[in-house]
Computed example of a mutant assay.
Amino acid sequence: MNIDEVVLNFSPGSMTALNVVIGLIMLGIALDTAPSDFAVVRRAPRAMLLALVAQLVLLPAVTFGLTLALDLQASLALGLILVACCPPGNVSQVLTYRAGGNVALSVSFTAVANVVYIVAMPLSIAFWGGLHPTASAILTEVSLDPLEVLRDVALVIGLPFAVGVGVRARWPRLAARVQRPVRWFSLLALVGFIVAALAGNFSVFVAYIGVVALAVFCHEAVALGVGYGVGRLGGLGPREVKALTFETGIRNAGLGLGLVFAFFGGLGGMAVVAGWWGIWDIIAGLALATAWARWSRSRAGDRSEAAA
């Protein structure tokens, strides 16, 4: 069975539910985003520039090279490219906090990036996917229209984000009360949705989990590494490097999964990649954040003992 020819079963009602969940995720992020968070462009322009370069340029470019190095089938390759072109995931701030990173900067990174990605994401998918020697055929077959993707992305992530920022600015107390429940509910709903989608197509998932797991494992490591490397080479402080690492390494794979069904007809390789990415990046991110926090505390303890 060629995974490039497999189409996963996904009802129109489920597609609507996924869009609602993604919209809630963006609403939850926006309710915790103050207008002042966008001032990071002025307060820390170098950090913001590094974050955008890491996510918009380096991550898709390195992903493109990784798909060639792993010699992946077309739909798997395009799935990785799609995820790399998605905006940062909403758990990046949670992981940054757990690792002891600069949470305020992480929030600002996410706020600015999600606005930029409304326009950048469809253009990036079309550009990098169109360059790929095998995945480009899929884009040709589906006749991907960047403007149509832009319209849908604006409705699914742009509108809820704008509403959330507006509510936060106009009614900050209300936003503070509902922000945490909305974010956690949407996160759990997304994880449950991805698990249900994979379970509903279990035979396809089992048949290709080996190659998909390897590809996603390598891609996640590369994404986190790009963020860490750019932060270190860019001269950011340790806490800022942690924020940039998770901002780059944690992608909104749920949105990617929605795009797979909306524009690529539920193409098997792309859907399994995006679905497994949505699970694995949380697992890998939590593991890294926990280990990083323990390592930082250990180093702080060693310095305290040395000073005594």
Rank of each mutant, 00 (worst) to 15 (best):
V7A: 13
G28F: 00
L31T: 11
D32T: 13
V40Y: 08
R43H: 10
R46H: 12
R46G: 09
L50M: 05
L50P: 06
L58Y: 03
L59Q: 10
P60H: 02
P60Y: 08
L66T: 10
A77R: 03
L82Y: 04
V103L: 09
L105C: 08
V107W: 08
V107P: 08
S108V: 13
F109D: 12
A113K: 02
V116Y: 08
A120N: 07
L123E: 13
G130A: 05
L131W: 06
L131D: 08
L131T: 07
L131S: 06
H132V: 15
V142P: 00
D152I: 02
V153F: 09
I157C: 00
V167P: 05
A169V: 09
V178M: 10
Q179N: 14
V182S: 02
A189S: 15
A199W: 05
S203C: 05
F205K: 08
F205G: 08
G210E: 05
V212L: 07
A213D: 04
H219Y: 02
H219L: 09
E220V: 11
A221M: 07
A221E: 04
L224H: 09
L236T: 02
G237E: 15
A243Y: 00
T245K: 06
T245E: 10
E247C: 06
R251I: 10
R251S: 11
A253G: 09
A253Y: 02
G258M: 06
W276P: 03
W276T: 12
W280F: 12
D281K: 10
I282T: 14
G301H: 14
A307Q: 14
